[in-house]
C-alpha cells in the first residue's frame, strides 16, 4: 500500500513538473509574440513621430530580448527561441540608433550567429540570415548618417576654376569615408551568396531591396567622387593644389566584387 502511494506521489509530481514546464513554454512563446509585436509597433508607429521616445523603448525591448536569449541559449531544446530573441534584440538595438548600445548590438549578433552556425542546416532561415545582415546594415547607416557622405559634394565645385583648401579637405574626407564604407557593402553582397535566398521569397525580396539600395547609395557617392576627381584633374592639370588622389584610384574605389546577386535583378 505504501509502495503504491509513493508511486502515485511520484506520478503526480512528474505530472506537475511536466505541466509546469508546459505552462512555462507556452508563456515564453506568448512573450516572444508580444515582444515581436511591440518591436514592430515601436518601429512602425512610434519612431516616425517620436524618435527620442522610441529609442528609449527600443533599448528596453532589446535588453529584455537579450536577457531572454541569454537565459535560453544554454538549453539545447530552446536554441531556436534564443535565436529569435537575439534577432529581436539586434533589430531593436539597431533601430534605437543609440551609439552607447553598439557593443550590445555586436554581442547579441555574435551570440545569435554562433547559435545559427551550431545548428547548421537546421538553423531558422529568416532569423539567421537577418543576423548576418544587421551589423553591416547598422554600420552602413551609421557611417553615412554621421559623415553625411552623400551631401558632402554640395560644397565642391571645381568648374569655377578654384580649388579651395576646404574643398580639398572635403574630397579627402569623402575618400576616407568611401574606403570605410566599401567593406560593409562587400559584406552585404557576400551574404547574398547564401543559397537559402533562392527558395525564400520573403527574405530574398527583403535582402535584394536593401542590398540594391545600399549598393546604389554607395555607387552614387563613389561615382560622383570619381567624376569630381576627374573634373579636378581636368581643371588643375598641374595638380596645384595637390589632391593626392588619382583618377584611377578614385575609379578603383567604386569597383565592387561581385555586385548585387543575379536573383535580385
Amino acid at each position: 500500500m505504501e509502495k503504491l502511494a509513493s508511486r502515485l506521489v511520484i506520478g503526480v509530481i512528474l505530472f506537475l513538473l511536466t505541466a509546469c514546464a508546459t505552462v512555462k513554454d507556452v508563456q515564453r512563446a506568448s512573450d516572444l509574440i508580444r515582444t515581436d509585436n511591440e518591436l514592430t509597433r515601436l518601429i512602425v508607429e512610434v519612431r516616425p513621430s517620436d524618435p527620442t521616445a522610441a529609442a528609449i523603448y527600443l533599448s528596453a525591448v532589446a535588453a529584455h530580448a537579450k536577457s531572454e536569449a541569454t537565459a535560453l541559449k544554454g538549453h539545447q531544446d530552446k536554441i531556436l527561441d534564443a535565436i529569435a530573441y537575439y534577432r529581436i534584440a539586434a533589430t531593436a538595438y539597431w533601430r534605437s540608433g543609440r551609439t552607447e548600445v553598439v557593443n550590445d548590438l555586436f554581442e547579441v549578433t555574435d551570440n545569435g550567429t554562433k547559435l545559427c552556425s551550431d545548428l547548421g542546416q537546421n538553423a531558422p532561415d529568416r532569423d539567421c540570415l537577418f543576423l548576418q545582415l544587421v551589423i553591416p546594415f547598422a554600420g552602413l547607416e551609421s557611417l553615412l548618417n554621421q559623415t553625411g557622405l552623400p551631401n558632402l559634394f554640395k560644397s565642391i565645385n571645381f568648374n569655377d576654376g578654384i580649388a579651395s583648401s576646404s574643398e580639398i579637405d572635403t574630397m579627402r574626407r569623402i575618400h576616407q569615408t568611401l574606403i570605410q564604407t566599401k567593406p560593409l557593402i562587400q559584406t552585404i553582397l557576400a551574404v547574398g551568396e547564401d543559397n537559402r535566398f533562392l527558395s525564400h521569397p520573403g527574405m530574398r525580396e527583403y535582402y535584394c531591396r536593401n542590398a540594391t539600395n545600399a549598393v546604389a547609395s554607395y555607387d552614387s557617392c563613389a561615382g560622383t567622387f570619381a567624376g569630381t576627381v576627374r573634373v579636378f584633374h581636368d581643371k588643375f592639370p598641374d595638380h596645384k593644389p595637390p589632391l593626392g588622389i588619382t583618377i584611377d584610384e578614385a575609379r578603383e574605389i567604386r569597383n565592387l566584387k561581385g555586385g548585387v546577386p543575379d536573383f535580385c535583378r
Binding site: 514592430t40 518601429i43 531556436l80 547607416e141 539600395n213 560622383t224
Partner: peptide
C-alpha cells in the same frame, strides 16, 4: 505553439540611408 511564435511572419526594418545631394 512555440514553433508558431518563432515561425510566424515578423517585421524586419529596412535600411535608412540619407538622401544625397543633387549631384549624387
Amino acid at each position: 505553439y512555440g514553433e508558431h511564435a518563432r515561425d510566424r511572419k515578423v517585421f524586419l526594418p529596412d535600411l535608412e540611408l540619407p538622401p544625397g545631394s543633387t549631384l549624387v
